[in-house]
């Protein structure tokens, strides 16, 4: 199934492959722009909007990578549930309050730039030097196949995720209890 092929010449822009490439680049751009908005906006609701843009971009990348199921789950859970819950929390807390959130922490300045440069450089070197294998489609991505895989080959991951969720629920309860006593 695994074969490594050299990168061919770039396809024409208006052919099917070329358009797919354009969409791929657009999705990467959307993800990065969304992330930047989420990090740099002063208003919390705008940050949520940026986060949503970022999630949609990631969903587009999943769709591009032949897994529509994961893409749709990304939109359903992250945009439809997580982002809505975050904005609900913001509205219930204090919508009028807009503190200017300054950038702070020990990694600001030269250390931050150094770390970022190291990570970016390392990833670039890895991306260029690695011989990327081209993997054929494993299965048709249908729900049945994904379900069988989840409950056989990846049942450990599946169970661990449910434990993570359980811990999250218990943690939320503990925090709520402490607040109530005060």
């Amino acid at each position: 199934m695994i074969s490594s092929t050299p990168i061919a010449a770039p396809p024409a822009l208006l052919s099917a492959d070329g358009l797919v490439g354009v969409i791929f680049l657009v999705m990467i751009g959307v993800t990065i722009i969304g992330g930047l908005i989420a990090c740099n906006s002063e208003r919390l609701v705008r940050a949520v909007a940026g986060l949503i843009v970022c999630f949609v971009g990631v969903a587009g990348l999943y769709y591009f990578l032949n897994s529509p199921f994961v893409a749709m789950m990304q939109v359903l859970i992250y945009v439809g549930a997580v982002a809505v819950t975050i904005s609900f929390a913001i509205m219930l807390a204090a919508p009028e309050e807009q503190k200017k959130i300054g950038v702070s922490g020990p990694l600001i300045g030269p250390f931050g730039f150094g770390t970022a440069a190291l990570i970016a450089g390392g990833f670039s070197v890895l991306a260029v030097r690695t011989e990327w294998p081209v993997i054929a489609k494993i299965n048709d991505g249908s729900i049945k196949k994904i379900g069988i895989q989840l409950l056989t080959n990846y049942s450990m991951v599946f169970e661990l995720i449910s434990i993570v969720l359980l811990i999250a629920i218990i943690g939320a309860l503990v925090i709520a209890r402490v607040e109530r006593k005060n």
Partner: peptide
């Protein structure tokens, strides 16, 4: 899944 995914984002517009 696709239809419910996009339908669930509809409330963002109201928010």
């Amino acid at each position: 899944l696709m239809i419910f995914a996009f339908a669930s984002t509809g409330s963002m517009s109201l928010i």
